[in-house]
Design a protein around this nucleic acid. Structure first.
Lengths: 175, 175
DNA sequence: CCGAGATACCTAGACTTCGAGGTATCACGA
DNA sequence: TCGTGATACCTCGAAGTCTAGGTATCTCGG
């Protein structure tokens, strides 16, 4: 998953690890920044496999960096993964859905249920940069290719549906 | 995640491992059955922690089973997790979205792009038992509590949005 | 010039899950 | 009665990620 994302982000441009980390964090609306201890070993692994090359640069802004760029085989690997993403259809680990599946067991305590829904609402309404370009709300048309447009459309629709349901349900439960 | 799901499924009724496996598989439309080598160690761990008890039964259908039931502390643990699901808000690993984010890089080969979308379409349109009770399509009203109703509503809306987008885009790309 | 903060990279141990194997029980048909 | 298939549980090694630490560089304000 992470290695796939790293290859994807490097396809267009060379980046160093810290930038890559910011890209990945921005993708998820800065909600789930990947940990250093996860990212750098993944980079090293890709480098060891010959999929990307590292070039040490003297520090311009701060500490010296390693510019990362895809090798030819890294490029080929990404394209191959895009062509045959069999395993990528499967995993969709949505822990919040797991909470919803069992939240009825707090039935003696509707206030606790409402509190959980309210925290979810707060979480979803904090500005997620996936939906914004700075302060400007994004639209599907802001993306150049139909695939990111679809991604945006699906994510937006899901978010809207959940927000509407959350607000209705919080009201219905007397919150 | 898995341990959470196990506790949730056992809250209402005692089950043995094999049934639990089927419940979890059914939840995901039999698309992602949990592996034995994942499930049984998780059960053992919960048992060691005193959250569930195991009672050996002689084999009625086949091999002898261990009936699993929540202990009082298992019950308390689930309710506590439901009350404070902080970490549960975060992880949402959607590998398919990762594919969509980068699928534009197959731009020299629209047929390969369409093939990927078509496989996704096949995957989404195979009967997922999460949306069906046997052959009968489920509705939100089939669930007793608002939380599973919401889960169903959100999942359905997401699925519908994606299906519409997939069909439109496959057509637009000349597939 | 000195400390704080941002930048940049790294290690180590733990946890969860996966996959590929193994063993044993029972029912049922050929 | 003998195999096959479904049921039921288990072990082990590999892989990916997380958390919690650590080190070093550079800028900038006081």
């Amino acid at each position: 998953m992470l290695q796939f994302a790293i290859l994807g982000f490097l396809y267009d441009e060379a980046l160093h690890g810290y930038d890559l980390r910011k890209r990945i964090a921005a993708l998820t609306g800065h909600i789930r920044p990947i940990a250093d201890g996860t990212l750098y070993p993944a980079i090293r692994k890709l480098a060891d496999a010959g999929l990307l090359s590292r070039e040490l640069q003297p520090g311009q802004v701060a500490a010296p960096r390693q510019m990362l760029s895809l090798t030819e085989s890294g490029r080929a690997d990404l394209l191959a993964r895009l062509r045959e993403p069999d395993e990528l259809f499967v995993t969709d680990e949505n822990r919040w859905f797991c909470v919803l599946a069992f939240l009825r067991y707090l039935d003696g305590d509707p206030e606790a249920q409402v509190a959980v829904l309210r925290r979810r609402l707060d979480f979803l309404t904090q500005p997620a940069s996936f939906f914004y370009d700075g302060d400007r709300p994004l639209r599907a048309a802001d993306f150049d290719d139909p695939f990111r447009q679809g991604l945006f459309t699906i994510a937006t629709a899901t978010s809207r549906t959940e927000l509407r349901w959350l607000r209705e349900t919080i009201t219905a439960l007397g919150g």
